[in-house]
Amino acid sequence: MDSSGAGAGAASPNPKCCVSLSAFYNNTIVPCPNCSCNCKGLPGAKCHSEENAGSMLQMPHDPLQEPEDLVRCTDHMCPIRVHWHVKQNYKAYWRVKITVTNLNMVRNYSDWSLVVQHPNLQSVQQIFSFNFQPLKIHGFLNDTGMFWGVRYYNEILMQSGVDGNVQTEMLLSKNTSLFTLHEGWAFPRKISFNGDHCVMPPPDDYPRVPNSSTASKLSLPVLVFISLLPIIIFVGPSHFLDYL
């Protein structure tokens, strides 16, 4: 690992990443919590918009030292954002897209790694663009796994810009008698990037599954017809108009 990257060493006491969430069944995109890594306006909270960062990026850096972090101005002020999107729900599988975005304008992350804790990781069927290895951290529970880039393809997470992200999709099999999208089950419990724990949105903010009750989807005329259906059956259709 070269000096331009941030390896998976000891975890930093200060957050360096955050998590945002979305799902196909809800239009809401849950962003990273505000001030996940810092707050704009506080001492030491340096950030720049992409428009005015050009002159900063052209400044010479000492090749023997890591460049000072220069993050894009956001509400969360994190150099790394991980987005978890519940993409599709099939009969026997469900599909997730993971996107890791580098919002650091001056640093590449070489040989990056992502550790995810999710109860369904024991049922991973296919990973499309990352390497994956289950991690049995909790004994008999196989709910944690590590993702990392494919050599010569996406093992380097480039600095902020057009190429400043890596992404994959994965298929997970499901036990149809136990599977549910309710109560945030489809979202990860914990995520770490290069050994740093990422700030998660609070569970109450997770995308909610819309109310799927039949009555909420029926129009008023249909509900009226259903309520009168016993009369139609009892007296016969030829006498139904006498009751209207």
Rank of each mutant, 00 (worst) to 15 (best):
Q58Y: 05
M59F: 08
M59A: 09
P60H: 05
P60G: 09
P60V: 12
D62C: 01
P63V: 05
L64M: 15
L64Q: 13
Q65I: 03
E66V: 00
E66L: 03
P67G: 00
E68P: 01
E68K: 09
E68D: 13
D69H: 03
L70E: 06
L70A: 08
L70M: 15
L70K: 01
L70P: 00
V71I: 13
V71E: 01
V71P: 02
R72F: 12
C73N: 12
C73H: 08
C73E: 09
C73S: 10
T74H: 00
T74V: 04
T74C: 01
T74W: 00
D75C: 10
D75V: 08
D75Y: 10
H76W: 10
H76L: 12
H76R: 06
H76E: 13
M77D: 02
M77S: 04
M77C: 03
M77R: 03
M77Q: 12
P79A: 03
P79Q: 06
P79H: 02
P79G: 04
I80Y: 05
I80V: 11
I80T: 04
I80H: 02
R81C: 13
V82L: 08
V82N: 01
H83L: 06
H83Y: 08
W84E: 09
H85S: 14
H85D: 14
V86H: 09
V86G: 01
V86I: 11
K87P: 05
K87A: 15
K87Q: 15
N89T: 14
N89H: 15
Y90G: 04
K91N: 14
A92H: 11
A92D: 07
A92Y: 07
Y93V: 14
Y93L: 15
W94G: 10
W94A: 10
R95M: 12
R95Y: 13
R95D: 14
R95K: 14
K97I: 09
K97T: 11
K97F: 05
I98P: 01
I98N: 00
T99V: 13
T99M: 12
T99W: 07
T101R: 06
T101M: 15
T101W: 07
L103C: 06
L103G: 07
L103D: 10
N104I: 04
N104E: 10
M105A: 07
M105H: 06
M105R: 09
V106H: 02
V106Y: 00
R107E: 00
N108M: 04
N108R: 03
N108V: 02
N108D: 14
Y109T: 02
S110M: 09
S110I: 07
D111S: 11
S113L: 09
S113V: 10
L114I: 15
